Computed example of a mutant assay.
Amino acid sequence: MMTIQFLKYIVAVAEIGSITEAAKQLHVSQPSLSAALKAAEKEVGFEIFTRSRSGVALTKEGVEFLGYARQGDTGDGPSGRPFHIEQTGEAALLRLDPALHVHGECIR
């Protein structure tokens, strides 16, 4: 299940353009951050980033996903977005719509 922390990681990596540098700024190990990104990508069913020796770049789907991630949602009801944020005690969880569509194609 994707958490708010995963979203923060995705936003940081997208803004910084480097998993290694983002890990330093987030105070997490690079392998942990890489694993979290892979888990997030597995959950949404598409690659958010392309990776190369010179850094990372958002895929087309990643650009759209990042836009949704930055908008946030209170979880207080339907928002028309393909996800909502649920507060569960001290934690917050991102719940994806099982029929998430990216560029008009169902990805789940």
Rank of each mutant, 00 (worst) to 15 (best):
L96Q: 06
A14N: 06
E86L: 10
L93F: 12
V28F: 10
G45I: 12
H101C: 13
E105G: 03
F49I: 06
L100I: 15
S29Q: 12
C106E: 14
Q25R: 15
K42M: 11
A39T: 15
H103V: 07
D73L: 02
L7P: 01
V28G: 05
E21I: 01
G62M: 08
Y9R: 12
A92E: 14
V56E: 06
T88P: 00
S54W: 02
K60Y: 11
T3V: 06
V11Y: 02
T88V: 13
L58I: 12
S52L: 00
V56S: 06
S18I: 00
P78G: 11
R53V: 00
E105S: 12
G75V: 08
L96W: 11
T20R: 08
T59P: 06
E61W: 05
R70A: 11
D97I: 05
L37V: 15
E61D: 14
L94W: 02
T20Y: 03
T3S: 15
R51K: 13
K60E: 14
Q25G: 08
A40P: 14
G77I: 10
K42Q: 15
T50R: 13
T74N: 08
V44K: 01
A22M: 03
G72Q: 05
F49Y: 04
P98Y: 05
I4Q: 09
T20M: 01
V56I: 12
D73E: 07
T88D: 14
Q87C: 02
R70C: 09
G77K: 08
E15L: 09
T50E: 15
